[in-house]
Design a binder for these strands. Sequence first.
DNA 1: TTGTTTTTGATCGTTTTTGAAAGAATTGCA
DNA 2: TGCAATTCTTTCAAAAACGATCAAAAACAA
Lengths: 259, 259
Amino acid sequence: MIREACPTLAPQRREHIRLLVRESGIARVEDLRRELKVSVATIRRDLEVLEDEGKVRRVHGGAVSMENRLEESVFDDKTSQFSKQKRSIAEKAYNLIGPDDSVFLDGGSTTLCLARLLKDRNDLTVVTNSLRAAGELSDSGPRVILTGGELRKISQTMVGPLTSAVLNQVRVDKAFMGTMGFCLKNGLTTTDPNEAFVKSLIMEQASQVVLLADSSKAEKVSFARVSDWQKIDVLLSDHKLPSTFIKTLPKHGVKVHVV
Amino acid sequence: MIREACPTLAPQRREHIRLLVRESGIARVEDLRRELKVSVATIRRDLEVLEDEGKVRRVHGGAVSMENRLEESVFDDKTSQFSKQKRSIAEKAYNLIGPDDSVFLDGGSTTLCLARLLKDRNDLTVVTNSLRAAGELSDSGPRVILTGGELRKISQTMVGPLTSAVLNQVRVDKAFMGTMGFCLKNGLTTTDPNEAFVKSLIMEQASQVVLLADSSKAEKVSFARVSDWQKIDVLLSDHKLPSTFIKTLPKHGVKVHVV
DNA sequence: TTGTTTTTGATCGTTTTTGAAAGAATTGCA
DNA sequence: TGCAATTCTTTCAAAAACGATCAAAAACAA
């Protein structure tokens, strides 16, 4: 017998899984299979969806919850599908950087990934408003210039009028930007207007603007508008990027690379 | 039998190990094997991962915790004989801060000590050019404003013309300054002219300037001049401060407190 | 009804994890 | 120092888990 019935609706089952994972912080695929009476393939597919939604993080043998911040210590794992995509995107971005370039690094986990790759590039100048990116490069490697400004603690980035004051006085060859969401209609959006303003400002000062955004950001829209697609030169994303973007964005002058 | 089942997930097991190691500070491979009921090979591999993550340090026979040692290590790694004095000086400085004050924190280990004391003061605004001070206050506590500028890696502070651009636009009630050396003749001196310039600039913008300097800095002279004693309102030092300073400095308008 | 899409389970080749064994390194003791 | 005991690293094989693919069942649309 290949298939039986559809005992529960998929969203309902996924919600059940989410709660089970959150309850004990961690759950094994095999246990979930017994509990829900479906095949391991289905469990795996559900976990994949939940990971894309940011609810759980998959590990070999099961998944851990991402909803309780208590588990943050197991958070920084490099094996999760998400992190793999981010790293691939960051590596692609790294190859765009030429010798002696000056680059801007935006906040966000993908650009932080890129920062790590720059640790032994003594020829570069890195401008950033991300405290964590600066921290990664604070021991050795490129010349580091921080933008200054008020520290927005939730994103660990510097924003506000003081940031603008510095940004108006610098220029970079390439700006590597992150975003909370992007879609064809509204372009790039993020949650905080101050952050959005800083982003748009640095994009003005860059010869080339590269957007690093995995496919989970696609079709997401946030409160504050950052920029339209005209300002973006390159989009680096992963293979799950909806084909609409691959078809449409080149018409706006955006080169799209998926990894 | 080569292999059994996968009773616990690897991240869960590693978390368990981490806690065991942190609890007693040290744990032996053999003890962990008995506790977790896996082979020593697995324990060793887990310890290797935890070491890569900076959670433990492996030693022959087991591992020691690297957590909860951060406070002490930062205090200790800067000449432990002075760390208690630095802490006392920082506490004295803390008492000078009023409600809703805006303060500037300079780089250096004593001001970093002060930064730690400010972690739950939500009423304050802290301006700093020290990356480490910003890091201490990056999760909670006061509003944090970074000056921006080029990162001087040896001191983990931001310096240069971009820093000046921001500093010209802020004002603080109190500036808490460190120094590499001070003496009656040359006033305050430090190694880097860029750093010296930033220091003198912020002192211009402060209603009150407090110098935090333990007695080891007395009679030391560095390359770059920061300021003369006229600019300083208060000197906080320890009881080993040569009495010349206690006698002479009040004539220049400097209140001297020793702890 | 018929045809299409979605969901689910099974299979297969691959990757990851784990345990065991052998040789190298370290420690303790005389 | 030399020797024994313990511990570590390396290497290999088995078991478990994984991803990709395909086929059957169900849901859906016309």
